[in-house]
C-alpha cells in the first residue's frame, strides 16, 4: 500500500476538523471536531509505525495513549460545557462574551473606571 494513502487521508480529516472547530457555534460540536483532528493524528502515528516497522511499536502505543487522553479530554470538556450550560442556559460559544470589552473609550476614562471599580 502506498504510504500516501493513510497520510493524505489523515491530512484531509485534520482539515475537516479545523473547519469544524472554526465554523461551529455549539460547544459539543466543537468537541466532536477536535475528536476528528485527534483521529487524524492517530492515523498518522499508526501509518508511520507500520511503515517504519518500529521494534518498540512506539506509534501504536502512542495511539493508545492519545485515545486515552482524548477520552479524558472529552470527559472534562463536557463537564465544563455542562457547568457553563447550568450557569448561563446556553451551549453556544458566541454567547460567552462576558470578558469582551465592548466599547473601549479613551485610555484615561478606562483608567478612571478601573479605579472606581477597585474602590
Amino acid at each position: 500500500m502506498p504510504l500516501l494513502m493513510p497520510v493524505v487521508l489523515a491530512c484531509l480529516l485534520f482539515a475537516v476538523g479545523i473547519f469544524g472547530v472554526l465554523a461551529r457555534r455549539n460547544a459539543i460540536l466543537v468537541l466532536m471536531s477536535v475528536e476528528l483532528m485527534l483521529n487524524a493524528v492517530n492515523l498518522n502515528l499508526v501509518a508511520f509505525d507500520v511503515y517504519l516497522r518500529d521494534q518498540l511499536l512506539a506509534g501504536q502505543t502512542f495511539t493508545l495513549f492519545v485515545i486515552t487522553i482524548a477520552a479524558a479530554e472529552v470527559g472534562l470538556g463536557l463537564a465544563i460545557v455542562l457547568l457553563v450550560y447550568r450557569n448561563r442556559e446556553t451551549a453556544q460559544l458566541d454567547d460567552l462574551h462576558q470578558l469582551r470589552e465592548d466599547d473601549p473609550g479613551p485610555p484615561d476614562v478606562r483608567d478612571d473606571t478601573r479605579e472606581t471599580a477597585a474602590r
Binding site: L3, C11, L12, F14
Partner: peptide
C-alpha cells in the same frame, strides 16, 4: 481549513511519493 489541508497534502506528497508500506 482548505489552505491548511492543501499545505499538508502538498508537503506529504512531495516528501513521501513512491514510498510503500
Amino acid at each position: 481549513a482548505a489552505s491548511a489541508g492543501a499545505v499538508l497534502v502538498a508537503s506529504v506528497v512531495t516528501s513521501f511519493r513512491g514510498e510503500r508500506i
